[in-house]
Design a protein around this nucleic acid. Sequence first.
DNA 1: TGCCAAAGCTTCAAGCCCGTAGTGTTTCGG
DNA 2: CCGAAACACTACGGGCTTGAAGCTTTGGCA
Lengths: 164, 164
Amino acid sequence: MLPENALASAVPDVADLPGAAPRPEETWLRIVQVHDRITRRVDSALHRQHGISLTGFEALRRIAEAPGQRASMGEVAEALGLSRAGVTSTVTRLVTEGFVVRERAADDRRLLHARLTDAGRAKLSEASPTHDGLVTHLLTHLGADAPVVTDALARVSAATRSRR
Amino acid sequence: MLPENALASAVPDVADLPGAAPRPEETWLRIVQVHDRITRRVDSALHRQHGISLTGFEALRRIAEAPGQRASMGEVAEALGLSRAGVTSTVTRLVTEGFVVRERAADDRRLLHARLTDAGRAKLSEASPTHDGLVTHLLTHLGADAPVVTDALARVSAATRSRR
DNA sequence: TGCCAAAGCTTCAAGCCCGTAGTGTTTCGG
DNA sequence: CCGAAACACTACGGGCTTGAAGCTTTGGCA
């Protein structure tokens, strides 16, 4: 059932700079490790230095980048990869913290828009350097491979983009 | 939906040539997307087809690969990137499901070892093809870049290996 | 030899997020 | 005009995190 790598040994590949094809298992392990470690570090840095969660930060950024600095719950959910219920509680938290306000959309009254407050904008520009600096720093070891990695992962991401 | 490259035609964008550096932001986004999507699919497939969680599966596999098919709580925590408390509850669940037994180590009586039962071994070999097959399938789009990606991520992983 | 710090694990509480399911409102097509 | 679809909220059960407290065992050191 599992073809293993029965045919991996056959052909000396052109692009064997870093070696032969690794087992998907190995690749997956690395993705998980990198994701978990960066996530933990960034999340705890945001908590300690700015009293905000990584999810909260990403929501703020997403709303800030939306046209009119407002976005519907569904858009935020889609953008952050959160569930509907998760976005509800995340935005509720942001509202009680004063970073965001909820308002019914004028054109389609089914939608609720989250809009940044001044405090939200301030928090975002305060926390952004921490977030971006850390991510940039932790990914420096990709070095010259960064474009290839980004591109390859983008293909995988696109191929797994799911209805749901 | 996202007009994010609406201005891509105006400026000779850096992201066009494979060799130009993408923003770390972009790379990070791809890592998160790929991780989240694969995790969700594999987890739900394991749940539906084998009634086991991804974390439970990884714990079983880890214990199976340990010398003597037994591992201490700490080893499992380290290997899976879980907290102590998380491992305790994960292993407790596996114990009540009959896949694992806990036993005090003979040489160092501070340690508790988790050891696979026959049912645990059976469940592992039943679920492994599902897990591995899915991971392999979802990562096929890495194509010839797989070695580069794996290697680059391994560097990042090594550089972020933390005490804790 | 005796003692105490450190290691390993568990437990509990609080917090965040998930998925599912059920409810209410609004919109849109037939 | 009416029903299906879309959007969002609430509630519930589950899993994982951190932090703190407590237990047993180990091992170094006086």
